[in-house]
Design a protein around this nucleic acid. Sequence first.
DNA 1: TATTGAATAATAACTATTATAAAACGAGCG
DNA 2: CGCTCGTTTTATAATAGTTATTATTCAATA
Lengths: 142, 142
Amino acid sequence: MRLTHKQFRELAAKHGLPVTHQRQVVYEAVIASHRHHSPEDIYAAVRRRIPSISLATVYNNLRLFIECGLLREVTPHASTLRVDGNLEPHHHLVCSRCKSVQDIEGDFIDLKRLSRQLPGGFDLSQPLIEVFGLCRSCSAKK
Amino acid sequence: MRLTHKQFRELAAKHGLPVTHQRQVVYEAVIASHRHHSPEDIYAAVRRRIPSISLATVYNNLRLFIECGLLREVTPHASTLRVDGNLEPHHHLVCSRCKSVQDIEGDFIDLKRLSRQLPGGFDLSQPLIEVFGLCRSCSAKK
DNA sequence: TATTGAATAATAACTATTATAAAACGAGCG
DNA sequence: CGCTCGTTTTATAATAGTTATTATTCAATA
């Protein structure tokens, strides 16, 4: 706990982010458990230490942390359903910022090696792979 | 247009899905344009042919098509934000059904080849790759 | 033609998230 | 030590996307 405490102060300083008690606690809650969290999970955990905290604060700070690179977003995606009628094997290149999607050929993947790394029982019979990054116009803006 | 007409009937038959006029038109709207659509886009397109169609019907049928494998879902994701505090390079194995996420090592990716396939200007300085499939318990249920 | 079950339309309800406005905080300065 | 200004937090309202509900329509069959 002491460790993440210090770790957060350093990260925040590096990104020019003022440290507040709420931010400290939110960050520690994310790090404390090693799984992938939803805002509600984090809200619940943080409330045990700051009962008065508001859900909006959790959202605000998570987003801030993601923007600054203190945290990563899992599957950064459009907030709405997208469908693809192309059933031919292909994969997607997704912009983490504007969520645009382009198709990409899949031959950069070593399926044999990937299968070897899979946990038992994981079914990859129709593998779909998404590569996240920043599209040209978003990386230009940055 | 005739082609997707027939294509849909065959696909539907293969999956034991009764063909209705609405389904036919929804499917054709997805295929007609080659991008990745939101339900609202599709709703707008379909309304030009069936003005009385309901948004719910579009949702229902898209979901049905995804379930049956007539369409793929782009970025199958939990309906809520997920956050990951682990900044070490690693990737994710995501279950398309239950949306659970596990970490996975990334050495099945040929980054050199991937970079060669990237469209100009795409920034992959912090590559994040997600592999979608079915986790053990979901593939058992199936 | 009457019956039955599935699909659709219309709309209400729900959930996750964002926006807004007011209150509290906190660093810097007199 | 108290004031002030900008930031953060809180509380809550608003919104967007999606799902659920229910009545209606349709299509197939007896």
